[in-house]
């Protein structure tokens, strides 16, 4: 009995020694687009709904990343999987790096936009969930899942804020995308995901950004959430 326990312990240790050689890395690289082109920030004006607008910041949480095989079985679940992706004129933080992965075929990936209800109950968290990231509400308990801020120019000299803070457990959405890729030993595989800003306002709910220039909870926030669940993300063919 003692002997077999000892053997087991030793074999676990020896596994650890060689782990780097037979494991792989996956990078999920997001790219924000507007009308199919790389998103540009303050200084670049776009036009929609008969008004010009510009964007100052776009941030969103991608969480609970999983891999599935071709039968739909979950074959990998990232622990403590909360990633704040952020883009402004001066900052671009749009990659999720998963390391120490088993070598395997990945048929599709699943992830959520937002923070699951369990974690969304308390703000004393660290890392990407640290309230210093300015994604936590200070008068309510929970995180903004997606934040986009900018300005709308109704006519020359008239401007108003564009503020979309989407959160709330009902707006936590899970997305599954086919990727058909392989984790290879000692190699980094990259999946590219495009995020099209206009699709936040497009379908299934058309949102006129001039009429709805602010959404922070309520019906319009839920419509934007249903839009981001629908068609915000699209996958590029993996390399």
């Amino acid at each position: 009995m003692y002997a077999s326990t000892l053997v087991l312990a030793l074999s676990v240790t020896s596994c650890n020694d060689t782990k780097e050689l037979d494991k792989g890395t996956l990078i999920i690289q997001f790219e924000n687009l507007l009308d199919g082109e790389a998103l540009k920030f303050e200084g670049t004006r776009y036009n929609r709904d008969q008004v010009d607008f510009q964007i100052a910041v776009l941030k969103y949480y991608i969480s609970n990343v999983k891999f599935l095989d071709e039968t739909g079985q979950v074959i990998y679940t990232e622990e403590e999987s909360y990633h704040l992706l952020e883009e402004t004129a001066s900052r671009k933080d749009l990659a999720i790096e998963l390391t120490e992965l088993e070598v395997q075929e990945v048929s599709s990936i699943e992830f959520s936009i937002g923070i699951d209800p369990e974690k969304n109950l308390s703000l004393d968290n660290t890392g990407d969930l640290d309230p210093s990231n300015e994604m936590a509400w200070n008068w309510d308990t929970g995180y903004k899942f997606l934040l986009m801020e900018g300005e709308i120019f109704e006519s020359e000299g008239t401007r108003k804020g564009m503020v979309y803070h989407i959160g709330g457990n009902e707006n936590y959405k899970t997305i599954k995308k086919e990727v058909n890729t392989k984790i290879k030993a000692g190699t980094t595989t990259t999946i590219e995901i495009k995020a099209e800003v206009l699709s936040l306002f497009d379908a299934p709910h058309y949102i006129n950004i001039n009429e709805v220039n602010v959404a922070m909870g309520g019906e319009n926030a839920s419509k934007i959430a249903e839009n981001y669940a629908n068609n915000f993300f699209s996958i590029n063919t993996p390399n």
Partner: peptide, 8 residues
């Protein structure tokens, strides 16, 4: 009741 606990 916006804050669910003192930690938040």
């Amino acid at each position: 009741g916006g804050a669910l606990n003192l930690e938040s």
